[in-house]
């Protein structure tokens, strides 16, 4: 018994994957100690409900094959993501379902070794399952209190300022950034004195090409939109399989805002201008990245 404990402690001390090819015994021991911790509740969650172990070992593990093999995501500009201090990552949002948020999360976790704390829509936290899974993977509600608190703690916070307007826009509008709301995220960054890292995500636009909408039914179900794609709802659940587009995620040079005073966060003109600046930066980054990627699908499509 003591042997098992010792081995599992060694196993969990190193970064997974860095260990020089652990034997089957060690892996089994680690699995058992993982299961024991999970069954007895001996793990920690933070005040937002983030469960790092569950996130890394279970939830992200489920998405990783999609990230690596389905969308073949490539990340660029990782040097622009701060290694251990607070920053606000601002990205474009698209794809009908917010798969881009998950891919960005894997990119930052596996390649930049940062747990990104995304700010999500109210709707997510009202729904069963989705709300608590979202908290367990480190995300929280998009509100100034939570954003400020996370940034003050030096966390890497991610936002999609387009919200539903971005993720639910029709296919014909692809790669065109929608309006950026009131720029609350800029105010939060100014208050916390952290840089804004613009992020462009290319590839999500093609996964579920939204060619129509069922607004009446959506209202009935309390959803912001109910999409029609070439495959959904025609093929039923099969229509929910995303198309395997090629993805690129690029983090741009941080927009420094630390020369502003925290009270400037209350200046609407300044916040609007900065919001515009961030939006234009991401749009031009997006255009260049789209060019660089080329066609979304191999020529056989």
């Amino acid at each position: 018994m003591s042997d098992v404990t010792r081995i599992s402690e060694e196993g969990s001390a190193g970064v997974p994957g860095d260990a020089p090819d652990p034997s089957d015994d060690e892996r089994l021991a680690e699995l058992f100690s993982f299961l024991r911790r999970r069954l007895t509740g001996e793990y920690e969650v933070d005040e937002f409900g983030f469960d790092p172990e569950l996130n890394d070992k279970v939830l992200l593990e489920l998405i990783r094959p999609v990230y690596r093999h389905w969308f073949r995501v490539e990340t660029l500009g990782l040097q622009h993501v701060p290694a251990d201090s607070g920053a606000l990552v601002v990205a474009n949002h698209s794809g009908t379902l917010p798969v881009d948020a998950l891919m960005m999360q894997v990119a930052l976790h596996d390649e930049a070794h940062r747990a990104v704390r995304l700010l999500g829509a109210d709707l997510v936290y009202q729904l069963p399952l989705l709300g608590h899974l979202s908290r367990k993977t480190g995300h929280t509600l998009a509100c100034p209190e939570d954003a400020d608190r996370l940034l003050r703690k030096g966390e890497l916070v991610g936002v999609f300022p387009e919200g539903f307007k971005g993720v639910g826009k029709p296919f014909s509008q692809r790669y065109r950034l929608q309006r950026f709301g009131r720029g609350g995220f800029v105010a939060s960054a100014i208050r916390a004195g952290v840089p804004i890292v613009p992020c462009a995500i290319v590839g999500a636009e093609e996964i579920y090409p939204k060619i129509g909408d069922l607004p009446a039914l959506a209202r009935l179900l309390g959803l912001p939109y109910l999409p029609i794609t070439p495959f959904f709802p025609w093929l039923g659940p099969l229509g929910l399989v995303p198309l395997p587009s090629k993805w690129l995620i690029e983090f741009g040079e941080p927009i420094r805002i630390d020369d502003y005073d925290p009270i400037d966060a209350d200046d609407p003109m300044l916040v609007f201008n900065l919001t515009d600046q961030v939006r234009e930066t991401i749009q031009s980054q997006l255009d260049a990245l789209r060019e660089r990627r080329g066609p979304a699908f191999p020529p056989i499509f």
């Binding site: 937002f48 409900g49 109210d122 009202q126 929280t140 509600l141 509100c143 209190e145 939570d146 608190r149």
Partner: peptide, 12 residues
């Protein structure tokens, strides 16, 4: 409530 901030302060 689902639309509350995650952590309440006295002024919230």
């Amino acid at each position: 409530a689902p639309n509350d901030p995650a952590v309440f302060t006295e002024d919230g």
